[in-house]
């Protein structure tokens, strides 16, 4: 089951947030975005520090109740998807969202200004349609 998705840029601006099957609503979404970015930041720098080579980031982590999938582009965009713990490896899915949905509907959209939150209905609807088509969306 897919819970929610964050997209951050390098500066930590949350470009996009959407939730689908989230059971426990957040009290303060702005606070949550900041905490999420801080978590990714720390986790990434920690995993780099203890890794045998200094270049790796991380792909996902799992707790008993949810799984966090992480994909970062060289241009510093971070895609974060939260699902239930039984979901498989969704890194390629996140990459597909980047190249197949984010680029055509956001990056190529002349009205979108880089670095600002995405307000593009067709992006949200295409994303939703795509995620709903995945077997793990409702499962």
């Amino acid at each position: 089951m897919i819970f929610n998705l964050f997209i951050f840029n390098r500066q930590g601006v949350c470009l996009f947030y959407e939730e689908w099957n989230r059971k426990r609503p957040t009290q303060n979404i702005e606070e949550e975005k900041k905490l999420m970015f801080g978590l990714l930041w720390s986790l990434k720098s920690f995993t780099q520090k203890i890794s045998p080579k200094p270049v790796t980031a991380f792909n996902s982590y799992t707790t008993p109740l949810y799984k966090l999938h992480f994909f970062e582009t060289a241009s510093g965009l971070k895609f974060v998807l939260l699902t239930d713990p039984s979901a498989g490896d969704l890194k390629e899915e996140l990459r597909a969202i980047y190249s197949g949905i984010f680029i055509p509907y956001v990056v190529r959209n002349p009205l979108y200004r880089p670095g600002e939150p995405v307000q593009c209905p067709i992006f949200s609807s295409t994303l939703k349609a795509h995620l709903s088509s995945l077997p793990c969306f409702k499962a």
Binding site: T73, A74, S75, L77, R95, Y98, F102, I103, V107, R108
Partner: peptide, 8 residues
């Protein structure tokens, strides 16, 4: 903008 197109 083009960089993302390029990377992908």
């Amino acid at each position: 903008r083009l960089i993302d197109e390029f990377l992908a």
